[in-house]
Design a binder for these strands. Sequence first.
DNA 1: GATGATATCTGACTAAAGTCAGACATCATG
DNA 2: CATGATGTCTGACTTTAGTCAGATATCATC
Lengths: 290, 290
Amino acid sequence: MLDPVSRVRRFNRAVTSAVGALDNSFLGRGRPLGAARVLNAIGHGRSDVAEIRDYLGLDSGLMSRLLRTLEDEGLVETTAHADDARRRVAKLTRTGRREFAAYEALSNAQAEGFLARNAQAEALLAAMDMVASALTRERVVLDEMDPQSEEARYCLGEYYAELGRRFKQGFDVSLSRDPDAKDMRRPRGTFIVAMSDTLPIGCVGLKGTDRGYAEIKRLWVAPAARGLRLGRRLMDAAEAAARELGIALLRLDTNSALPEAGQLYRTTGWREIPRFNDDPYPDLFFEKRI
Amino acid sequence: MLDPVSRVRRFNRAVTSAVGALDNSFLGRGRPLGAARVLNAIGHGRSDVAEIRDYLGLDSGLMSRLLRTLEDEGLVETTAHADDARRRVAKLTRTGRREFAAYEALSNAQAEGFLARNAQAEALLAAMDMVASALTRERVVLDEMDPQSEEARYCLGEYYAELGRRFKQGFDVSLSRDPDAKDMRRPRGTFIVAMSDTLPIGCVGLKGTDRGYAEIKRLWVAPAARGLRLGRRLMDAAEAAARELGIALLRLDTNSALPEAGQLYRTTGWREIPRFNDDPYPDLFFEKRI
DNA sequence: GATGATATCTGACTAAAGTCAGACATCATG
DNA sequence: CATGATGTCTGACTTTAGTCAGATATCATC
């Protein structure tokens, strides 16, 4: 009853019935679930027919028929793909967008209802983030993004907030050497965000300099995503990007108040070096030749 | 993307696909999901056909046919109910138990695999408990149980551990007036456990005395279940039980290090009274006439 | 023991989901 | 431009799920 496996299974039972309830509310719009799922996949930006089929795990025959019924209802239009006329691209018509919005409203209402029923919403959301991150860990994708994109700014905000909590003296961005966004764009550097579905759960910056090396900056992993070895994946991706950009030497600075970071660097081929800048926050400096 | 509703919806998507994967592994045993579900419901102790039908939300015709296919496979036997021959009772045959065990093994393997893939298992399990409790809050049932049952002892263990964390000086059960189990059994008193599915998530004891009042003891709500107003429900149930037992006056002691408890008592008709025992831990005393 | 209620079962459906083989157009390649 | 590969579509299925109207047996009650 109380062993870990039972707890996981209790969780499974609880969410199974919640998921079933949401499916039921979708049926309320008088369309079989299969068609509703295709409509929603298109609404969420999946346009390539093969991609949708793959995402929903449908047979090509079935997929084709579902698309046909949506076309007959006037909700979807399909056209040949611009680069390859064998492939088909689906998009919503005006009516289709309206119908999609109705499904979105159902989903949102369900989520809002759930939140409204529960006090302690923040603790609950943090728990849901954690579970969702663990469930989708195989599907975390690392995307290179502009350091001023919404996703990147979210990560950086969380990162600064965490430093503020972790450092005894707090953390004030303006005192730190805040890297210029332009140094973290190709071809000088890059900025990588780890996305779990639509939620950014980690980031790392590669900042180009004119001093014969590039710096790793802003490595952050969301609390909900710790234990998934995401820090390592982000560092690997940053190194790979550096190699692509012809960078041979990497440096970084960190603080001993972040022991898990130091640990990661030490076990992945970085070696400690003397201070190489005058930023007030770091007290540990590393270098890696790649 | 980052608003609460989106986070809930991301969670929904994550668990939807996890649930789908488990359903798929069930299909691997060559039996449609409907039949597998009935078999598993019986295996988990639901024997009454009407109860299973209700639990799974099936039409009586469909239920009947699913039972027939399981009987034809030799997995299930149905007999008339001892008290009412209209009702049917299903039980697994020897082969049925073996088949049920195979499904259990699949579920367990899935859960174990999930746990094995994730470090930080305890944090993750706590998060899953919290989410599951929130999802099933309408289905929390309060059961009177023996204070020495496994469920009760689990609750008490968690309760003591929490006091140890909350009290500056720690908490040692042996120093406290640990109520005798026999005082928390009918007809002197009772012990109530809040069960969410198979997990105990809260408890309260009603301890009979020979001093003209009964005491409320061991009110505990699992961290994962806070915010569900469970404390209030437990107290209401304890009062109702006291009334049933002809008890007119209730007392309890608590500690100001547990502010949410004091808050609950004050808002539910309890009034503070002078110390009425010499237990070293409490510093607040309440009374309520019912 | 007649009567209405209850629990299950059967027959006769429909709808939805899924499978599979081939048809057809298009693509990449030599 | 012939050839094999790829992506989608159609037709012809099967299986699963679900619905509904009686039929049948049993129960509680008068």
